[in-house]
Amino acid sequence: MRTGAPASAGTTTPAGRMAALARAELTLLSRTKATLFAALFVPLVLPFTLRSAVDEMDLDGTGLSVGSVLLPSAIGFSLLFAVYSSLVTVYAARREELVLKRLRTGELRDSEILAGAALPSVAIGLVQCVVLSAACAALLDLGVPQAPHLALVGLLLGLVMWPALAAVVSSFSRSVEGAQVAAMPLLLISMLASGTLVPLEILPDRLASLCELLPLTPVVTLIRGGWTGDLSAYDALGAVATAVAWIVLAVFAVRRWFRWEPRR
């Protein structure tokens, strides 16, 4: 963990500063048991509780298998719980303790503060995705991805999008508890309507096309398409565009509305 964190003399670099902050955040995460539990176990356990439901789904004619339904869902849950939900709490907690304000008096740039604080959660999300992919491949006969580049693009977009959305959502609350409540709507909508619990392929067309505009949907679509290999270039580009639009929107909102100090 000593990488890039200059302990003594020398001018700091963005990477070094973010590493120092990320290390502290990792320490803090390891001491907040509730957040750690939600981040580590929920995304790993939840998909397997869904398995019986997926087994009973009528997947004939959708080109989907149990594995290609479950894995993108699992990765979606990982983004929602390990990244988004825990980061909403982290940002709100640091703001309430005036940590964000204090950090802003130092050499860190604003973007470095937000990114550095997000790094441990993003890393956990990434590791979970790798573990889940390996587990699904081994246990559900999913095999290797047919278009790995799509899955990779989907994952990377998700890992940028959800910290940014977490920062936006955390701005609309006055306390850590309030932030956890504020995180719920997007969390629930994403679980229900982004193809995680129910594949969009078995929804009515009009509802499905509405659901495609949600932030988690393009991530799930790209990852699923990466494994099945039957996502058309047109659909893939559409998903990437939707994801990029959400990222741009979230970054804009952060720059415009992110609160560095508690409301008093």
């Binding site: 003594s8 001018t11 120092a20 290390r23 050499e107």
Partner: peptide, 15 residues
């Protein structure tokens, strides 16, 4: 830990 974090973000930090 607090000082170490801050040192990582401070040019020419004391031990």
């Amino acid at each position: 830990e607090t000082v170490r974090m801050w040192a990582g973000c401070t040019s020419g930090a004391r031990p």
